[in-house]
């Protein structure tokens, strides 16, 4: 550790040694040999780790798997898509205009950039897939009834049925009598399609031949409990370090620890979703991380932070051999 020297060195001698050519002693150092050895060592380590541990590859979930293993949940989700009460249907930008999205103070980028990946939950997830294949007579009739109704009528049927289904704890056989129009038949028709495996392919194509965009499938899959339950079972939820973890007993993206860390703080994942920090966590944590990344980037220019290495003299250990031969400063 140094303190300011009482007798200041002359200007020429105070010239920063770090910024000019080294005039002190040298040692032989073969960087090419070092690089080749490093490459060999890393290659061997990689082959060993890959041979011993393989790599994670849990098969993706399918709509068929969802509709066969949790048909009630799939059915209820189909009703929510028609009623506009699902997460996707009420998401807002960039998928639709059902909500404004998150804003923090004057920053409202989600709204600013608008709808760039349009998703119409009722039509994209339920009506268009049903119409894409030959259906039984009751589903065909239900589609015709749905088409001929006004949009207000469609919403009334679907929301009434959604409420009644929720009141019946998701059991379609115990739903109270009411005017639900074609909604129960449409939801059952989609559940049957999904169980048979047809929905996976039809959601993919939606009128195009080539397709590399899975936005609709991911959103629909996430609206039910199937994906969520699978993620909970695999410890992938945001409040258990989320995507920093990996399926199986594998290390995940440990380098995302600081990003995931903020979501572990109770204020950012409180039980009350209306708490400001919890409801705005996605935006606030991103801004925190952006600022911290900038701090790391500009560390050499930040007084105080850049002096930590001097205050905690780990460099005395790193360069211990050299300091031993140096006159004390």
């Amino acid at each position: 550790m140094t303190t300011r020297t009482a007798d200041r060195a002359p200007a020429a001698k105070r010239a920063d040694i770090a910024s000019r050519e080294w005039k002190g002693p040298w040692r032989r150092y073969d960087i090419v040999k070092e690089g080749v050895i490093a490459l060999v060592v890393v290659s061997i380590l990689t082959v060993l780790l890959a041979g011993l541990f393989s790599s994670p590859d849990e098969p993706p979930l399918t709509f068929q798997g969802w509709a066969t293993s949790a048909p009630d949940n799939f059915y209820a989700t189909a009703v929510q898509e028609l009623a506009g009460t699902s997460t996707s249907a009420g998401y807002g930008p960039p998928y639709n205009t059902a909500a404004d999205g998150i804003s923090v103070g004057p920053l409202a980028p989600q709204q600013r950039f608008g709808v760039t990946h349009p998703v119409d939950a009722a039509n994209d997830f339920v009506i268009t897939p049903l119409r894409s294949q030959l259906q039984s007579a009751d589903v065909t009739d239900a589609l015709a009834t749905w088409d001929s109704a006004s949009s207000d009528q469609q919403t009334a049927w679907a929301t009434d049925y959604d409420t009644a289904l929720t009141d019946a704890d998701g059991d379609a056989t115990k739903v109270a009598d009411g005017d639900y129009g074609p909604v129960p038949v449409l939801a059952q028709g989609l559940t049957d399609m999904a169980s048979a495996g047809a929905l996976d392919g039809i959601l993919m194509s939606q009128g195009v031949f080539y397709q590399t965009d899975f936005t609709k499938q991911i959103l629909f899959l996430g609206d039910g409990s199937y994906l969520d339950d699978a993620a909970t079972a695999a410890h992938l939820q945001g409040n258990t370090w989320g995507m920093m973890n990996e399926t199986g007993s594998y290390p995940g993206q440990a380098w995302l620890w600081l990003y995931s860390f903020w979501y572990q703080i109770p204020q950012f994942n409180s039980d009350n979703p209306d708490d400001y920090l919890t409801s705005h966590a996605d935006a606030i944590i991103f801004y925190i991380m952006a600022v911290l990344s900038l701090v790391l980037l500009l560390l050499p220019f930040i007084p105080g932070l850049r002096s930590i290495p001097r205050w905690i003299p780990i460099h005395r250990l790193i360069w211990r051999d050299f300091y031993r031969t140096q006159p004390k400063s």
Partner: peptide, 14 residues
């Protein structure tokens, strides 16, 4: 999405 990046960088677009 919350910070607007999702409008251009769509993680569901394989």
């Amino acid at each position: 999405n919350a910070v607007g990046i999702g409008a251009f960088f769509n993680v569901a677009n394989l």
